[in-house]
Amino acid sequence: MRFAVLVFPGSNCDIDAVKAVEDVLGEPVDSVWHTETDLSQYDCVIVPGGFSYGDYLRSGAVASLSPVMGAVKEHAAAGKLVIGICNGFQILTETGLLPGVLRHNDHLQFRCEISELRVENTDTAFTNDYEKGQVIRIPIAHGEGNYFADQATIDQLKANNQIVFTYHGTNPNGSIENIAGICNEQGNVLGMMPHPERAVHELLGSADGKAMFTSIFRTWGEKHGA
């Protein structure tokens, strides 16, 4: 299984995502520059965190117009996997691959901590190694993670079981319905504010993010008979 981790000017969690794939799965993973237009050799694309283009104007807005995002849309349309983490989630909403927007945290400050998430949907390619309702500890680090969508969209997300993670206990940013991560209707594109790639070793404070990578690998394996 081959992973791509996109690199935009200003990405800063790209290396962490590469290391997580290597450490957890040992599968091949490439850093892919934002000017690339062909992602056909990859099975899973990670849009990493950071401050692409400084988050100037709106977070994710400039990156969403990069050449590589055209290829990401094709990749998603082909049913292959896409994960946007933190800034990557913001880029995916700006691109229109996921509904809604991420607004400034309600307390207006950047917030970095290990937060508790509830796994709401374990039927996705990204979460099938978790138990439904399981509470996991995954770091967050963002200033604009306050998920918002209109009521019709929220109703739709619920009806299609697209809410994948919610904050358990304290909501760190004021997101509607405590949403921490959602997927698209087909279930192959996931966006989440928390950083699973930061939770892959006990030394880092949590290893609860590992199951996300193993889920992806298992799904791919089942599909490809590996």
Binding site: Y53, G54, L57, V62
Partner: peptide
């Protein structure tokens, strides 16, 4: 104006 400079470049590249 860092934002302005970045947006100028982005508009140029578009």
């Amino acid at each position: 104006d860092p934002q302005g400079t970045t947006i100028t470049k982005s508009l140029n590249s578009l």
